[in-house]
């Protein structure tokens, strides 16, 4: 062959390495980390350390943080309570394309739309009946949990379903031939093998719940120190033009989220080698 494609020519090694997928990916990862760093840096340098600590230990922030943690944990737990059995049932099953899309729909639903949906629901007879005979949701702390649950349950289902789909169905059927009943096979084989994926789903679900503003504010309102989660505290301080306080609360939220994610990650690596 006399004619050589110009692509066959060996690139000079350093330039060649730069355009390899992995190197380009590292560049992208570096950009992302830098981007996050700048955002946090802007927030962190906006206010002095003294003010930050002051805002952190203020009653308002502490109450909001406690409420945020409690509500998001309740909501994520409730979401998983639905998502784990539903995800297990829907995994390894050829679903109707409409059903499959419906499962994915909540992922793109804006939180505000979820909030409006819930508010309208409590205007109906069924909603009113529930409110008078069970718990009050609208403008209460239960409303926060409900809003966050509604926002995250579809998200959790999608992730948990994927986690179960990652476990080869033959493990469970082989366990059955060895004498395990359906419950034992699920508990001993499928659940532990999907464990890492479910734990990831739990963390992401919790994170989505903690960060929610739109759904929470519509259902639970923004009553200072009553239905005030951390994102709502940021909003309340902003609307009262207390910019430094708002930034301090936002940083608190970041700090809490970082600590929580770190803890969960540590626990996960310990239990799943």
């Amino acid at each position: 062959m006399t004619r050589r494609n110009h692509r066959d020519r060996p690139l000079s090694s350093s330039v060649g390495r730069l355009v390899e997928p992995r190197s380009l990916g590292l560049l992208a990862a570096g950009f992302y980390l830098g981007f996050v760093g700048v955002l946090v840096g802007v927030l962190a340098t906006f206010t002095g350390l003294g003010r930050l600590v002051g805002a952190l230990v203020s009653t308002e922030t502490m109450t909001a943080a406690g409420l945020s943690l409690g509500a998001a944990t309740c909501a994520a737990a409730a979401s998983l309570l639905v998502a784990v059995p539903a995800g297990y049932a829907l995994a390894h099953r050829r679903l109707n394309v409409i059903v499959e899309t419906l499962v994915d729909l909540p992922l793109v639903l804006p939180p505000v739309a979820v909030g409006i949906g819930l508010l309208l629901f409590f205007q109906t007879r069924v909603g009113e009946f529930l409110e008078t005979h069970t718990v009050r949701f609208v403008f209460t702390r239960w409303g926060i949990v409900l809003a966050q649950f509604s926002l995250t349950v579809g998200f959790a289902l999608r992730l948990v379903k994927d986690a179960f789909e990652g476990v080869d169905a033959r493990f469970e059927s082989t366990a059955r031939t060895l004498g395990a009943g359906p419950w034992a096979a699920f508990r001993e084989v499928t659940l532990p093998l999907a464990g890492r994926g479910i734990a990831t789903a739990a963390v992401l679900t919790w994170a989505r719940a903690v960060g929610d503003f739109g759904a929470t504010v519509l259902v639970a309102g923004a009553t200072r120190e009553r239905t005030e989660t951390l994102p709502i505290a940021v909003f309340l301080n902003l609307s009262a033009v207390r910019l430094e306080q708002a930034v301090a609360v936002a940083l608190t939220l970041l700090l809490f989220a970082f600590a929580a994610l770190l803890l969960v990650r540590r626990a996960m690596t310990r239990s799943f080698r």
């Binding site: 059927s173 059955r176 031939t177 060895l178 004498g179 395990a180 009943g181 359906p182």
Partner: peptide, 8 residues
């Protein structure tokens, strides 16, 4: 069910 069949 498989668990009652006694198969290896």
């Amino acid at each position: 069910p498989p668990e009652a069949r006694d198969v290896g």
